[in-house]
Design a protein around this nucleic acid. Structure first.
Length: 532
RNA sequence: GCGUCCGUGGCUCAAUUGGAUAGAGUUUCGGACUUCGGAUCCGACGGUUAUAGGUUCGAAUCCUAUCGGGCGCACCA
């Protein structure tokens, strides 16, 4: 819709025209401040220019009115155009808001270590990433969702140790002394139990077998993580394991050429040449590679797989890492501008107004799976998708558990359910509704229809600006328009029944598509009890 | 100290990326059911967009400084 209008104006003015939503709908459907930018070039007042432009529009199919208000140029779409578009949308509902982009994208997100279950902080990045993924897919991009599994390094050894400690205390009933760092949590119980079944009881006490134990156990932890994600409708196309990458290290290192150098028996990457604060160690004196080395091999592998654009979603605590990874990409001979790192800011929890500190090792974590159990996947997704990802999010646990009408997800679902109910109660046939011509609409009906047809613009904007919160924002306001219209107008048994139902069908479609892009299934009816 | 993200009604968040009178929800108060689902709708209260300068037709948004907060600043991942 917007594309159509935009193309029309581009043709007329010979330049790209910024189209926006007017502040007040009575001004029209679209507006542009083009006169302001022309004012300087033409040395005329914006008012005069917009007046002139407005009067230069002749009769056409798309606009019913073009007028100038305080320098803004406002466009009102013709009923014929809107009506035609609405019919097209209903007949081609599977094409609604879709595009055909050709680019290949690689989106890496979550990538939590396989040493414990996902906590509430991971949930934010997971929801953000999956929503972007769904948007991109809908827009026709060839996008791959990837999870990078850090299954090498100290934290894996620590997992082995932690299982042993748990088993010795709870199965062997020994009294054990806990070192400073180890993992704890209920998830260790089944791991310890299964380890005993698989390896025998002696696995718990043999320190030399920690690594063996950990390598086995990490798969179990990954299963846990994948299940939690699946419960939230989040799926990955590919998993890349850090442990499989190091064989490639020598080749990758030589590929970087002068980007790496040896000093004091260690190998450094000269990342300070590429904007990093200092050079970084990639191989230690004893020959063990650092974490960064793994990331370098991984990113080399990503670029060798050849995508048009790469998006990483990292927690904000990793932002210091961006410069060094980008430096490595440059040394490898690739364009680091193709790598886009999005940070999802921390989630801080309050409990009864007091800051609630999370520490994985201390075990007092809020698990993602616990939240899903309590409020459901839909509410979790909605809440996290509603906030801009670059703002630290703070919420009270009590608030999060609330499950009443203040929760916007219920509000939107109810709007959709209302539409389904009224459609099923109508005695009109499908054809009678579909063939209704959407003309002579009054202001409210026109606005409702136009809002419902706006989904394609929202989807496009939400993805390209990486601002997924625009989608829930839109759905809330569309639901509000629907509820208001529903309250103000009687529909069944009136002369306008077919018209209004047709508009409702478009609204329902927008809500349904919008929700599905958030990984939420629209409901056709709401049960009386409040439950998921 | 350096880097980075931020600071918007009492609270949680928006604001078409520089555009028209800064909007929603929540809280508080007051209204609307002989109506298709009242899980709804309407109204009121509530703002110097942290502060001070600057840039221009126009600033919550860009620049500078100050104040306040989160997160980094490993040969840990």
């Amino acid at each position: 819709m917007k594309q159509r209008v935009s193309a029309l104006l581009r043709e007329k003015f010979g330049r790209e025209v910024v189209l926006e939503k007017p502040r007040d709908r009575s001004f029209g459907h679209f507006a542009t401040p083009i006169a302001f930018s022309l004012a300087k070039e033409l040395k005329q007042s914006p008012m005069a220019i917009s007046e002139e432009l407005a009067s230069s529009f002749e009769e056409n199919d798309v606009f019913s009115k073009v007028e100038s208000v305080k320098g803004y140029l406002n466009f009102r779409l013709s009923e014929g155009f809107l009506s035609q578009y609405a019919s097209w949308v209903l007949q081609n509902h599977s094409e609604f808001a879709k595009q055909e982009k050709k680019e290949k994208l690689l989106l890496e997100f979550v990538s939590a270590n396989p040493t414990g279950p996902l906590h509430i902080g991971h949930a934010r990045g997971a929801v953000y990433g999956d929503t972007l993924y769904r948007l991109a897919k809908h827009l026709g991009y060839d996008i791959t969702a990837e999870y990078y599994v850090n299954d090498a390094g100290n934290q894996i050894d620590l997992l082995g140790l932690s299982i042993q400690l748990y088993g010795r205390e709870n199965i062997l009933k020994e009294s054990v002394e806990y070192p400073q760092s180890y993992y704890r949590g209920d998830y260790l119980a089944p791991l310890a139990q299964k380890a005993v079944e698989k390896f025998g009881i002696e696995i718990l006490s043999d320190e030399s077998r920690q690594k063996e134990l950990a390598i086995w156990a990490k798969d179990g932890v990954m299963e846990l993580i994948v299940k939690t994600l699946a419960d939230t409708n989040i799926h990955f196309d590919t998993f890349v394991y850090e442990s499989t990458l190091y064989d490639d290290w020598d080749r990758v290192m030589s590929k970087m050429g002068d980007g790496v150098y040896k000093k004091d028996d260690k190998i450094y990457i000269a990342s300070s040449q590429k904007g990093d604060d200092s050079d970084r160690v990639v191989v230690r004196e004893d020959g063990r590679a650092t974490y960064l080395a793994g990331d370098i091999v991984y990113h080399n592998q990503k670029f060798e797989r050849s995508y048009d654009h790469y998006i990483n979603i990292w927690g904000a605590d990793h932002h210091g890492y961006i410069a060094r990874v980008k430096a490595a990409v440059e040394f490898l001979g690739y364009d680091s501008n193709k790598l886009e790192v999005l940070l999802s800011q921390m989630v801080s929890l309050l409990k009864d107004g007091e800051p609630y500190k999370m520490s994985k090792r201390a075990g007092n974590v809020i698990l993602m799976s616990d939240i899903v159990d309590e409020i459901g996947s839909d509410a979790l997704r909605f809440i996290f998708a509603s906030k801009k990802s670059d703002t630290a999010l703070e919420f009270d646990l009590a608030e999060f558990k609330k499950q009443d009408s203040s929760n916007p997800i219920f509000y939107i679902q109810y709007a959709h359910a209302r539409i389904q109910t009224i459609l099923s109660k109508s005695t009109l046939t499908q054809d009678e509704v579909m063939n209704a011509s959407l003309t002579n609409l009054d202001e409210s009906a026109d606005i409702l229809l136009f809002d419902a047809l706006l989904l394609p613009e929202i989807v496009d904007d939400a993805f390209h600006s990486r601002g997924v919160q625009k989608l829930p924002e839109y759905l809330k306001s569309l639901a509000a328009s629907l509820h208001k219209f529903y309250y103000d107008y009687k529909i069944l048994g009136t002369p306008n029944e077919a018209k209004y139902l047709k508009i409702f069908m478009v609204v329902g479609l927008s809500l349904r598509v919008g929700l599905s892009l958030m990984g939420i299934k629209a409901k056709d009816y709401m049960s009386k009890e409040i439950e998921e």
